[in-house]
Design a binder for these strands. Structure first.
Length: 272
DNA sequence: CATTACCTGCAA
DNA sequence: TTGCAGGTAATG
């Protein structure tokens, strides 16, 4: 989803669905389904179930349906939408829940990387992605954060992106966090001192908090369920800003590739 | 580790 | 036409 802040805003704005009764599920991209992989089976099984609550862990959003659960991962281009009543789904809407009051939830996903899990809560929990998820970035404590990082070797940025280490950090959060903590993305974790990890932790919390207060980043596909845009992109210090100057120094921001991902840094603030 | 695959759209 | 995109899994 975009990343943790976008998932959090999505979760909050899906709150109107709570207590609604589902009348149908439809899907034109069953390859995105997990656990129960048949559109017909889900449709038959889901009818009449009510949304009891909505949760988020890392980048995943869960609708609690009591004996069942439906979970969404928006991956690169996904977006959950509550469309105005009786709107026709557009080209990239691949999954639709409709409710007894005539409202709907759409999963809009041009690149079709998004994933929808449907099944019993225990079954969904056992799925590879969920089974290995680490503590959520908002919830994790300083001591856990440091302990989890110190279990591994290698470059810090790819490690921050691993959802089994900390759940919710994506490419934007990682670059912004490392810039704020003045740590080079290629620094190896085992060379980081305790003070570095403390700064990294604070930076991550600050970036996540700002991302949420700015209501996520609308760069391309992602938007709020009600169609509003996020504003976090206006506050980004380095991500996607190659050539612009670093807010802390006259140095131009540089783009590089780290762990196969586009990465933006200030080479003055972030030394190897 | 790095690279590729999964998809589509958009900008250079 | 090429390269790139907020993610992850499957390969060398």
């Amino acid at each position: 989803m975009p990343e943790l802040p976008e998932a959090e805003i999505t979760k909050r704005k899906l709150a109107p669905l709570i207590k609604k009764t589902i009348v149908s599920f439809s899907c034109d991209w069953p390859r995105g389904l997990r656990v129960v992989r048949s559109t017909r089976d889900i449709n038959r099984d889901i009818r009449g179930r009510r949304v009891r609550g909505i949760r988020r862990h890392g980048k995943v959003i869960f609708l609690d349906l009591g004996e069942r659960i439906i979970a969404f991962h928006q991956r690169m281009s996904g977006r959950l939408e509550i469309p105005p009543r009786s709107t026709k789904p557009t080209k990239h809407v691949h999954h639709i829940l409709t409710f007894s009051d005539g409202s709907a939830l759409w999963f809009h996903d041009p690149r079709k990387f998004g994933v929808v899990w449907y099944g019993k809560p225990e079954e969904v929990k056992k799925e590879p992605y969920h089974r290995t998820l680490g503590s959520d970035g908002l919830a994790i404590t300083l001591s856990d954060f440091k302990a989890r990082l110190r279990e591994h070797r290698g470059m810090i940025k790819p490690l921050l992106l691993r959802q089994d280490v900390v759940a919710g950090i994506g490419n934007i959060t990682a670059d912004e966090t490392l810039w704020e903590a003045r740590i080079h993305p290629k620094r190896h974790v085992h060379t980081l001192k305790d003070a570095d990890l403390n700064r990294l932790f604070r930076a991550m919390k600050n970036v996540l908090d700002l991302g949420i207060r700015a209501e996520g980043s609308t760069l391309r596909d992602w938007a709020h369920p009600d169609g509003e845009s996020g504003k976090f992109q206006e506050y980004l210090k380095v991500y996607g800003r190659g050539g612009e100057k670093c807010p802390r120094s006259p140095t131009p921001i540089k783009r590089m590739v780290v762990g196969g991902r586009g990465t933006w840094i200030c080479s003055k603030c972030q030394r190897l």
